[in-house]
C-alpha cells in the first residue's frame, strides 16, 4: 500500500514535469509565460553555485521565524488568559473580531511605512497573521476542555496553576498544534509579501526582481525554493507534534 502510494506519487510528478517540458519544447506551452522545468532547475543550480541565494533564504527564514515565535507566544498567552477569564473574553471579543476581519495584506504597506524596509516590518506583518490563528486555536482549546476533567482535577486538589499545567495546557496543545503548520505557512506569507512590497533581500525580493524583468524562470525558481523551505519546516514541526501528542494515538 505505502509503496504503491509512493510509486504513484513519483509517477504523477514525472508525468506533470515531463509533460510540461515536452509541451514547452514542442511549442504547445509558451516558455516565455510558463518557462520549463529544465530551465528552472538550471536557474536553481546557478543560484546555489554562487551561494548568494543563501542570504535571501536566511533572511526570509529569520523574518518568518521571528514572526512565528512572537506571534504564537502572544496568541498562546492571550488565548489562555481570555480562555480562563470569561469577562475579559466578552469585552475583547468585538475588538478581536474586527481586527481579524481586516484583510491583513493592507497592513503591509503601513508596516513598511512604520518600521522601514528592514526585517521588522516583515516580522510585524507576519505576526499579525500568526497571532490570530494561534490565539483562536488556543482559546478554543482552553474553552473546549471537558468539564469533567476540570472538576475531577479540582476535586483531587488541583490549584489553578496545577489545573493549567496538568489539564488546560495539554488539552490546548492539540488545538495549538492543529494550527501550527498553518501558522508557519502564514509566517512565511508575512515575510514574503512584506519583502515583495519593499525590501533589500529575501525570497520575496528575489521573486519581485524576477517579475520586474519579466523573468518567468526566475519567478518560478523562487517559488520552488520557497515551497521547499516551507515543506522542510513542516516536516520538523510534524515530528515535534507527533511526540507531544502521542497520547492521541492508540497503540
Amino acid at each position: 500500500m505505502r509503496a504503491k502510494v509512493a510509486a504513484s506519487r513519483l509517477g504523477l510528478a514525472a508525468v506533470l514535469l515531463i509533460g510540461w517540458e515536452a509541451g514547452a519544447r514542442a511549442g504547445v506551452i509558451d516558455p516565455f509565460f510558463f518557462s520549463r522545468p529544465a530551465l528552472i532547475a538550471a536557474r536553481l543550480t546557478e543560484w546555489f553555485s554562487t551561494a548568494q541565494i543563501w542570504r535571501h533564504v536566511g533572511l526570509t527564514l529569520l523574518e518568518a521565524l521571528l514572526a512565528f515565535v512572537i506571534g504564537s507566544a502572544a496568541g498562546i498567552v492571550l488565548g489562555f488568559w481570555l480562555g480562563r477569564w470569561p469577562l475579559g473574553a466578552a469585552v475583547a471579543e468585538p475588538f478581536l473580531q474586527t481586527a481579524n476581519a481586516l484583510p491583513r495584506v493592507v497592513l503591509a504597506p503601513l508596516f513598511i511605512f512604520w518600521f522601514g524596509l528592514g526585517i521588522w516590518s516583515k516580522v510585524a506583518f507576519g505576526m499579525t497573521l500568526v497571532f490570530f490563528l494561534v490565539f483562536f486555536n488556543t482559546y478554543r482549546g482552553v474553552r473546549s476542555v471537558d468539564r469533567v476533567l476540570i472538576d475531577n482535577a479540582r476535586l483531587l486538589g488541583a490549584s489553578e496553576s496545577q489545573l493549567l499545567r496538568h489539564v488546560l495546557m495539554p488539552s490546548a496543545l492539540g488545538w495549538i498544534f492543529s494550527g501550527l503548520e498553518a501558522s508557519i505557512g502564514l509566517a512565511m506569507v508575512g515575510a514574503v509579501v512584506g519583502e515583495y512590497l519593499g525590501a533589500t533581500g529575501g525570497l520575496g525580493y528575489v521573486i519581485a526582481q524576477a517579475e520586474g524583468l519579466l523573468d518567468t524562470t526566475g519567478m518560478l525558481a523562487g517559488m520552488t525554493l520557497l515551497a521547499a523551505v516551507v515543506l522542510a519546516i513542516a516536516a520538523v514541526v510534524g515530528r515535534v507534534e507527533r511526540h507531544l501528542l502521542r497520547w492521541q494515538q492508540p497503540r
Partner: peptide, 13 residues
C-alpha cells in the same frame, strides 16, 4: 472523591 459516570482520566497522562 468522585467517580464520574464519564471517563475523567486525563488522556495525556
Amino acid at each position: 472523591s468522585y467517580l464520574f459516570q464519564q471517563d475523567a482520566l486525563l488522556p495525556w497522562k
